[in-house]
Nucleic acid binder design. Structure first.
Lengths: 255, 255
DNA sequence: CAGTGGTCTAGACCACTGC
DNA sequence: CAGTGGTCTAGACCACTGA
């Protein structure tokens, strides 16, 4: 009667208790030594469960995005809200909006949005970036990167890549925020955006991504190539915490 | 000089070797006891690395979708091809195509597609399904589920939910394939599809999903609600292997 | 300082695969 | 049968947190 492994029984029990509200969001689970004792009833002779087994159970919950850990503090329950990003319409494409597109989009949804650490750099295009922008391998690109917070919590990391000839002479190359929005700035310099192609993938986070997002859960990656009538003008790669984000697309079948 | 943990050094080294082609797709890595010896040079005194440490390294690679394991056999390198699904157009919406939409879509891409284990059931709608289809909680729905293979390998799991009143009297309620396609079948019964809304999320696989997909990597989940002019007519949930799948959307900004 | 999680070791027994 | 990975234990030392 193939019984489940111990670490899965522990994980299943903790998951059930968390979802039932026994450990509300933000609270700490019992410490690992305490859990060793708590689950001693699972041992035929009532001996305590070994620490590695407890840790294997906690690791599952961490990958599911249910809990996270802090060295020296403990394991705590993560907030379970999910934020839906409507991706089938580019915010700020229509001119004259006057505010930063991301902040505007989120304000509509009733959230507190914030951008941090805006940085600009000039780099050699990686093969992926060159392919997306249809550039020669090794061409120079301008990269603008930013960290985004939602209601004070880390939420996504974004990098936008512009072909050097396009960014040159625009505000995109300066390390400051573009008040009227980057799409409008491109339009003013003759690169009006008319369409884009998204590719959505998912994967485990890098160590840097996990550190910023405060999560070991998988990430949702949105790769967006925007183009004018003539050519690709921008590649934007956005990495979202997968446990709290969904991407939405509205599509009409028969135009 | 904060040196990296041992298991990360091992994982990084194996990852590099795999990507460099030292262990081509389909081949087996050295066994765990062998790897213990192989990395003894990382120990200051040249002693072998412990098995748990090796296993922690292999677990990372498994979550990244780089390798997979079979009990009694070993750890082998997974194929790294990725398949892009164009999701911004519903295959088979235009009437008169005559073949199954999924098989047609994939044949175009030059792949061998196959559906397996088509099953039909009547269930009570879960809260999520009821919300998507705008039904009363507890309403009955018809569920059609299928497993999909690509080039002979498991690729995705799909469940389609239809409101009972819509499926009744159509071929959707019978456990057989609908040769002219389910969208055409809906149209013939007065439920012509005119639009849909997708929500894309990602998460770790359940045990059943991991077993079928042969992968411990995260999954991409596509939730699609199709609607006629009057109402939602179908909810389709598709679970893709995240390591080999991207969803693509083409969007025009200014129609 | 005591308590927490992070890393690592050594060894045990089991279940599965293929010869 | 020998060799593989799957599970589990016991114990060690470290790094980080907060009182």
């Amino acid at each position: 009667m193939a019984t489940e492994p111990l670490y899965q029984q522990v994980a299943d029990d903790l998951r059930t208790k968390i979802l039932a509200g026994e450990y509300p969001a933000g609270t700490f689970l019992p410490s690992e030594p305490t859990l060793e004792e708590d689950y001693s009833h699972l041992d035929p002779e009532g001996r305590k469960v070994s620490r590695n087994t407890i840790r294997q159970a906690l690791a599952s919950l961490q990958n599911e995005g249910l809990i996270d850990k802090r060295q020296g503090r403990g394991s705590f329950v993560r907030e379970q809200r999910t934020f839906i990003v409507l991706a089938s319409r580019e915010e700020g494409v229509r001119p004259g909006e006057g505010t930063d597109a991301f902040v505007a989009a989120v304000r509509v949804a009733g959230r507190q949005a914030e951008q941090r650490n805006l940085q600009t750099a000039i780099r050699v295009a990686s093969p992926e970036v060159a392919a997306g922008l249809k550039l020669e391998p090794g061409a120079a690109v301008v990269v603008r990167s930013v960290q985004r917070m939602l209601d004070g919590r880390p939420w996504s990391l974004q990098e936008s890549f512009y072909p050097m000839e396009i960014a040159q002479g625009t505000k995109l190359i300066s390390p400051e925020n573009v008040e009227h929005g980057t799409i409008e700035e491109l339009r003013r310099h003759g690169h009006a955006q008319i369409a884009y192609r998204d590719e959505v993938e998912c994967r485990m986070p890098t160590r840097e991504e996990a550190d910023f997002l405060g999560s070991e859960a998988p990430v949702l990656v949105l790769n967006r190539v925007a183009r004018s009538a003539e050519r690709p003008i921008r590649l934007t790669v956005t990495v979202y915490d997968g446990a709290s984000t969904r991407l939405a697309y509205e599509v009409d079948d028969l135009p």
